[in-house]
Amino acid sequence: MAELVKCENVSKFYGKKEALSSLTLNLESGKIIGLLGPNGSGKTTLIKLLCGLLTPTNGQLSVCGLSIGAETKAMVSYLPERSYIPEWMKVSDILDYFQDFYADFRRGLAEDMFSRLNIDLGQKVKTLSKGNKEKVQLVLVMSRNAKLYLLDEPIAGVDPAARDYILDTIISNYNPEASVVISTHLITDIERIIDDVVMLQYGHLKIHGSADAIRAEKGMSIDELFREVYRC
């Protein structure tokens, strides 16, 4: 498997607070990776560093051997945990936007998913419900033929039916040669789909390995392991 993401001694401070501490981590392509940890463990910080929204205090990060910049952003498809689409835009406007900026954007696929979700392309983003806004963002992100998908808490705060829809959308639309990093603390829902596990605690790497190997070695599910590792 080719090395897709490389973090070398990456640290990130917010003021005096350390969010990531000398993190060294390599992620391979062709995997669905569960980025797990409780709140404040550094999951979102790591994702933001990889998509260029944050700059590391120390250390080096690369995607496909390139330092984070415009070239890596063309290969990374990022789903933040908040709504980022300008409210004044129509759904068709945001499709035009993605089509203009991302060479790997598959507009037909996105339109097809919107049609199945009964989302009108002429509808303004501000008139969409919270759930539909999240689905629009997910469709946009998964309609890209990216090399790395970074999904920050994609299933947090949604009902179980929506969770199933989101996870099915991820599995059926991602580029199999790419990697998908899913950050969450809802392990039960994603356990069935993840190949690798990265567990963070207080900004440190706690566990990293194949999900199957970890289950075999520890004799428990990832969910059970999570509860044991992060027991209060």
Partner: peptide
């Protein structure tokens, strides 16, 4: 919040 879209575009 719009920066999450703008700053992740493949643009310098």
């Amino acid at each position: 919040d719009e920066g999450y879209l703008t700053n992740t575009l493949p643009v310098t």
